[in-house]
Design a protein around this nucleic acid. Structure first.
Length: 320
DNA sequence: AATCAGGACAACCGCATTTTC
DNA sequence: AGAAAATGCGGTTGTCCTGAT
């Protein structure tokens, strides 16, 4: 079955020849591409407009960056994919000179496999269940008194260094959360009020941004971070690409609330779109405000925690 | 040298959305 | 306003290349 747009035409399919490329380039350079359906005719090509458009956008456009993806680009893809999912065109907007097709291919052929090999689910960016169980076993060896998954962050190789490099930012850590055990991406100082920690005290969330290997596997928010605690001194420490930033829980809550309000107001933004399309995860967060949605929390705050020196991260699909 | 498998990437397909008439 | 055409997007398939056997 051919394209609907050209079902009546005699069209050529398959790989483009250099001659066809030349014709298309010459035509678009001279006349632009106001209407793709007319481009094929006017350029003397026996291709449908859709095919011409694809060839131009994905291959012939002069501003395309050729060659393999850099480590930074790869990280950007992972970071943005974590927030937006398989929205390749949105992701590609954060990578100048790259196309959605290119990003998608790179994801499917490389990144996906890499994440799986790291024990991460490429769709959710959370630990795969098999790895989670394995990690829990390790933790119980390190911390016989707790079955918390908090020590997942001990997997982060350079976080200790980073903490030492910016000690002024670390106000306090409880013994149980010392960086010796917890070179953590997020530390809440109100948790040391809990002498014994249960799994249910914490919610696992996957990492957001892991430039410099700082936050390679996880970020964990204590339940209190979402309004269950009245502790005024509670702080959340978040690592992001080599620096640690602190926010009060109250500030964080306010930010989330504000973001949620704005999100609900903005009929066109991506989060709202997802909710409208029936994404159950998103709907849950809109419909049941009493049950705070951690996924949304992270999504909304991701840009806050993201590396601020990455210019490519400046414009997410939603901005607060 | 032949063949097979797997990876990389280009292109297609079908559907949704937007634009045009 | 609504139908048709055009465009955009994400998933999938096809093709080529390379390395292993």
């Amino acid at each position: 079955m051919g394209h609907r747009c050209c079902s009546k035409q005699k069209i050529k399919r398959g790989l483009w020849s250099p001659e066809e490329d030349e014709k298309l380039i010459r035509h678009i350079t001279a006349h632009g591409h106001k209407s793709w359906s007319s481009v094929s005719k006017l350029a003397g090509l026996q291709r449908c407009g859709k095919s011409c458009r694809l060839r131009w956008i994905n291959y012939l456009r002069p501003d395309l960056k050729r060659g393999s993806f850099t480590a930074e680009e790869e990280q950007t893809i992972i970071d943005v994919h974590r927030i937006l999912g398989n929205r390749w065109s949105q992701i590609a907007k954060h990578l100048p000179g790259r196309t959605d097709n290119e990003v998608k291919n790179f994801w499917n052929s490389c990144i996906k496999k890499k994440l799986i090999s790291q024990g991460l689910d490429p769709q959710t960016h959370t630990l795969l269940s098999s790895h989670r169980r394995a990690t829990d076993c390790n933790i119980s060896k390190i911390h016989p008194n707790t079955n918390s998954i908090f020590t997942l962050n001990s997997l982060i190789p350079n976080a200790d260094k980073a903490l030492k490099a910016q000690p002024d930012l670390v106000q306090t850590t409880s013994p149980i959360f010392s960086s010796e055990y917890h070179p953590t991406s997020i530390i809440s100082n109100n948790v040391h009020a809990h002498d014994s920690l249960n799994f249910s005290d914490f919610h696992y969330l996957p990492s957001i941004g892991n430039t410099n290997n700082l936050c390679s596997s996880s970020c964990i928010y204590p339940s209190s971070a979402v309004g269950l605690s009245g502790n005024e001194n509670s702080n959340i420490w978040a690592s992001s690409a080599g620096n640690f930033r602190a926010q009060t829980l109250e500030g964080m809550q306010a930010q989330v609330q504000q973001a949620k309000e704005k999100t609900c107001e903005k009929g066109t933004d991506d989060v709202r779109e997802l909710a409208n399309k029936g994404n159950p995860e998103m709907n849950a967060s809109f419909d049941h405000s009493s049950n705070f949605d951690f996924g949304l929390l992270e999504n909304l705050l991701a840009s806050e925690f993201m590396p601020h020196d990455l210019s490519s991260m400046d414009n997410f699909a939603w901005n607060f």
